[in-house]
C-alpha cells in the first residue's frame, strides 16, 4: 500500500497497529517521522510498536525522545512504565505510571498497566486497587475482570475471585484466556469437574500449549490416561520438561514402561539443562 501525504501515512500506521500488523505499522510511523520529526505523540506510537515487537531498547529511546519533546505526554509516561515493567524494574515502572496518573488521574492505560505491574511484582492488593479504579472510570472489559479475579485468587479472596471470574466470562464468553484462567482456578480449588469443562472449551477455541497442558493434566488427574497422552503427544514434547514429566506419570499409569523410560531420559536431560541455568 502506498500512502500519499503525511496524514495518510499516520492513518495507515494507526490502522496497521490496531490490526496487530506491527512491522508494517513501525515502518509507516518511521516514514511519517522522516517527514515530520517533531511529533512527540508519533514517537510514542513508534515506541509502542517497538515494545510490542519486543525491542525494548528502541522503545526506550523513542519514549525518551517523546518525553524530551513533551514532558506532559501521558502516553509516553505509561509506555516508559511498561518498558520498566518488562525489565522488572518495579520502582521505576511505578514512578512512571505515577507521573502519568498525576497528569491524568483517570487515564485508563496508566491505571491498567500500573495494575498489571503491581500484580507481576506481587503487590496484589495495590493491583486490585488499580483495577477497581479502571472499572470505576467506566471501562468494562472481560480481560480486566480476569486480571482482577486472578489478583483476588492469589490474595486468597475466593468469593471475590469467583465473582470477578464469572463477570469476566459473562463479558467475554469466548475468550480462551479467561476460560483457561477460571478453569485452572477452579481445578486448583478442588473443583476439577467444573474447571475441566472450561479448560476444554478454552482448548477447543484456541489450542495453546498452556491450555493443552492444563487439559492433559486434568485428564490425567481424572484417570483418563489415553486422552491425556494423546493430547500431549499431538502437541509435541520438544524441550518441555513439564510435558515429559506428565507423560512419565501417564505412561506409568498405563503400564507403558518403555515409553515412560524414554520420557524419563528426556526429562533427566531437560532437568540437567535447567539446573545449569545461570542465576
Amino acid at each position: 500500500m502506498v500512502a500519499s501525504g503525511p496524514g495518510d501515512l499516520l492513518d495507515s500506521a494507526s490502522a496497521a497497529y490496531r490490526s496487530n500488523r506491527l512491522a508494517e505499522a513501525k515502518m509507516l510511523y518511521q516514514q511519517y517521522l522522516d517527514r515530520v520529526a517533531d511529533r512527540a505523540d508519533v514517537h510514542a506510537s513508534l515506541a509502542a510498536c517497538d515494545l510490542s515487537l519486543g525491542d525494548l531498547q528502541a522503545a526506550l529511546e523513542q519514549t525518551q525522545l517523546a518525553l524530551r519533546m513533551d514532558a506532559r505526554l501521558v502516553k509516553a509516561h505509561v509506555l516508559l512504565g511498561r518498558i520498566y515493567t518488562n525489565t522488572q524494574q518495579w520502582r521505576l515502572a511505578q514512578e512512571s505510571f505515577d507521573r502519568a496518573l498525576a497528569l491524568n488521574s483517570s487515564d485508563r492505560d496508566g491505571l491498567y498497566f500500573s495494575g498489571l505491574a503491581f500484580h507481576e511484582e506481587g503487590q496484589l492488593q495495590k493491583a486490585v486497587e488499580r483495577f477497581l479504579k479502571v472499572l470505576a472510570a467506566g471501562s468494562v472489559e472481560g480481560r480486566l475482570y480476569n486480571h482482577l479475579a486472578n489478583a483476588y485468587a492469589l490474595l486468597g479472596r475466593s468469593q471475590d475471585a469467583d465473582a470477578a471470574f464469572q463477570r469476566a466470562i459473562q463479558l467475554a464468553p469466548d475468550d480462551p484466556e479467561i476460560l483457561l484462567a477460571y478453569g485452572q482456578y477452579l481445578i486448583e480449588m478442588g473443583r476439577g469437574n467444573d474447571g475441566s469443562k472450561l479448560v476444554r472449551r478454552s482448548f477447543s477455541l484456541r489450542p495453546s500449549p498452556e491450555s493443552r497442558f492444563v487439559l492433559a493434566r486434568t485428564l490425567y488427574q481424572q484417570a483418563q490416561y489415553a486422552e491425556a497422552a494423546a493430547l500431549l503427544e499431538a502437541g509435541g514434547t520438544e524441550s518441555d520438561c513439564r510435558v515429559s514429566n506428565l507423560l512419565v506419570k501417564i505412561y506409568r499409569e498405563q503400564g507403558l514402561r518403555q515409553k515412560a523410560q524414554a520420557q524419563i531420559e528426556k526429562l533427566t536431560a531437560c532437568l540437567v539443562v535447567g539446573s545449569n541455568a545461570t542465576p
Partner: peptide, 29 residues
C-alpha cells in the same frame, strides 16, 4: 507453590492429589 500431597497408589508409585484434596487451594498463601 501449594503444599503437595502425593497419594500412594499401592503399586509402588504416587499420584498427586494436591488440588483434589483441597490442600493446594488452602495452602496457597
Amino acid at each position: 507453590e501449594r503444599f503437595s500431597y502425593f497419594h500412594n497408589d499401592g503399586h509402588g508409585s504416587f499420584v498427586e492429589r494436591t488440588y483434589q484434596s483441597r490442600l493446594g487451594g488452602l495452602s496457597y498463601r
